[in-house]
Computed example of a mutant assay.
Amino acid sequence: MPRSEPPNSPDTDSPAKTGQGQGVSYVEAGEGDAGQRIDNFLSRILKDVPRSLIYRILRTGEVRVNGKRAKPETRLAEGDRIRLPPLQRKTEEQRAAERAAPSRSLREFVDSAIIHEDRDLIVVNKPAGVAVHGGSGLSAGVIEALRATHPELKELELVHRLDRDTSGVLMIAKRRAVLRELHALLRERDMEKRYLALVVGRWPFGAKTIDLPLKTNLKQGGERVVRVHADGQQAITTFKPIQHFGKLATLLDISLGTGRTHQIRVHAAHAGHPIAGDEKYGDRERDAKLKPFGLQRMFLHAQSLTFERKGAKPFTVSAPPPPDWQAVIDKLKQGLK
């Protein structure tokens, strides 16, 4: 570790102080450091110093090896004495904030998925595999990415949620007053939510409404699951077949009368035709038959939202399924020929 050099004692090897504003320090290269470039060596031992700062002090000649100025490509030998200038180190709070902050790639990915924006709302065509918010081992999701990209919007909040593996329409309110209004529409069931789903097997029922209560927080192997249960909350889902792909799968149009956790997934599985690729409620044997057609994830897509705000015309926003979805559908169609 670096060692500090107190004033007027250039060769004293007293321990370095952590934090900001420490003095000149020295560190000695060990046997395992022999042959390593100085820039990589410093990045390894100075984890709380930005890499950009490390290159700046190398460019300006403030890093010296055995009294000589070091360049980034300088290679070390065992026993080399490396002089470091005073460094502005990151605090623990800064490091924690950086760990929690959404990455640049996530911010750009989410921003590119915006399909509608007005003074009240942002609507994203959420990609499958992206969480709507951080948690469960994830530091950030859609809402954190949008807050980081739009710091001027101080009241951004999710209007509703989608499972991580579900793609499609996700709505975010820009103001709390709008959030309260839209939550009221959801409670009163005045917001129409439509989904597309590919289920395994041939759906035999035609148009079918399933009205079965669902209970959450039942544990299975330590994970939260949802089941049809007499003591659960009312849940209503209407399924309408769009296209059959032989006995392999069926494309369904789905509308929700309620908005319970995992509602579509559990009702579809209860009907004997779970969502294709659903690892929690699905059928692995029947999923395996769809792998040759490109099935790699759960095929549930939030297609549209329709509602009417006070004093305004009906508002509808739709999101097309992602390209990988259409590729699987096209292959299934070809398989019917």
Score class of each variant (00 low, 15 high):
Glu108His: 08
Gly168Phe: 05
Glu108Pro: 04
Lys174Ile: 11
Arg161Ala: 10
Gly134Tyr: 07
Gly129Lys: 03
Gly135Pro: 06
Met171Thr: 15
Met171Asp: 06
Ala184Gly: 13
Ile172Met: 02
His160Ile: 08
Phe109Gly: 00
Leu162Asn: 11
Ile172Glu: 00
Lys126Trp: 06
His116Phe: 13
His183Glu: 15
Leu170Ala: 03
Asp165Met: 11
Ile122His: 00
Glu152Leu: 03
Glu108Trp: 01
Arg164Ala: 12
Ala184Gln: 15
His160Gln: 09
Ser136Cys: 02
Asp163Trp: 08
Gly168Met: 14
Met171Arg: 03
Val159Tyr: 04
Leu185Val: 12
Arg161Asp: 08
Ala140Lys: 09
Leu170Asp: 10
Val178Leu: 14
Val178Glu: 04
Ala184Phe: 10
Ala113Leu: 10
Glu117Cys: 00
Asn125Glu: 04
His116Leu: 14
Val132Cys: 13
Leu179Gln: 15
Leu153Asn: 02
Ser112Thr: 00
Lys126Asp: 06
Glu181His: 13
Val132Leu: 01
Ala140Arg: 08
Leu182Gln: 04
Ala173Pro: 11
Ala131Trp: 01
Leu121Ile: 01
Leu121Glu: 04
Ala131Glu: 13
Val124Ile: 12
Lys174Trp: 11
Leu185Arg: 08
Val178Lys: 13
Leu170Val: 03
Val124His: 00
Asp118Thr: 05
Ile143Gln: 03
Val132Pro: 06
Glu157Pro: 01
Pro127Tyr: 00
Leu146Phe: 01
Val142Gln: 02
Ala140Met: 04
Ala145Tyr: 10
Ser112Gly: 12
Glu157Ile: 01
His116Met: 08
Leu185Trp: 05
Thr166Cys: 11
Lys174Val: 14
Thr166Phe: 06
Lys126Ile: 03
Ala113His: 11
Asp118Val: 11
Val132Asp: 10
Ile122Asn: 00
Ala131His: 11
Ile115Ala: 02
Glu144Met: 09
Val130Pro: 00
Gly137Tyr: 01
